[in-house]
């Protein structure tokens, strides 16, 4: 996996998924520029968290695409997969990001474990 973005801070974890392909985990303290830059030719998809909502609420991507959530609220939020299908984020403070790489094709529901009314869906196509 190539990383060409100079993050201010970056945690990268290999994620174990039963199915293997999967997720890369980035947590960046700075976000604006990073969110719009393509990485390694893969399309970068951004989900903005604002007003206690994931926007867009449903995002369709290709397997291998990167997906980045960025929190624009003054309230911490998390990104947690329903059924633990991908690595959860830690609590994202204002302007913090969380990035994964889309795994195998399928539909992935997720929510904010701090404010569970906040839900979203990732659809991964082949």
């Amino acid at each position: 996996m190539k990383h060409m973005i100079a993050f201010v801070r970056q945690n990268k974890k290999a994620v174990l998924l039963a199915i293997l392909i999967v997720l890369n985990f980035c947590l960046a303290a700075r976000g604006d520029e990073a969110a719009s830059i393509a990485v390694g030719g893969d399309k970068r998809n951004t989900i903005e968290i604002r007003d206690f909502m994931f926007n867009p609420p449903t995002l369709t991507v290709k397997a291998g695409d990167k997906i980045t959530w960025i929190n624009r609220d003054d309230e911490p939020h998390t990104v947690v997969s329903v059924g633990k299908k991908f690595q959860k984020s830690s609590a994202l403070d204002t302007d913090q990001e969380f990035t994964i790489t889309a795994g195998p094709a399928g539909t992935y529901e997720y929510f904010c474990s701090v404010h569970p009314k906040m839900t979203g869906t990732i659809v991964v196509e082949k």
Binding site: V80, V82, E109, F111, S113, P116, K117, T119
Partner: peptide, 13 residues
């Protein structure tokens, strides 16, 4: 004293 902030479920309270 009760705890109602743990293991919250998607879409729930």
């Amino acid at each position: 004293g009760l705890v109602n902030v743990l293991e919250l479920q998607a879409g729930g309270l």
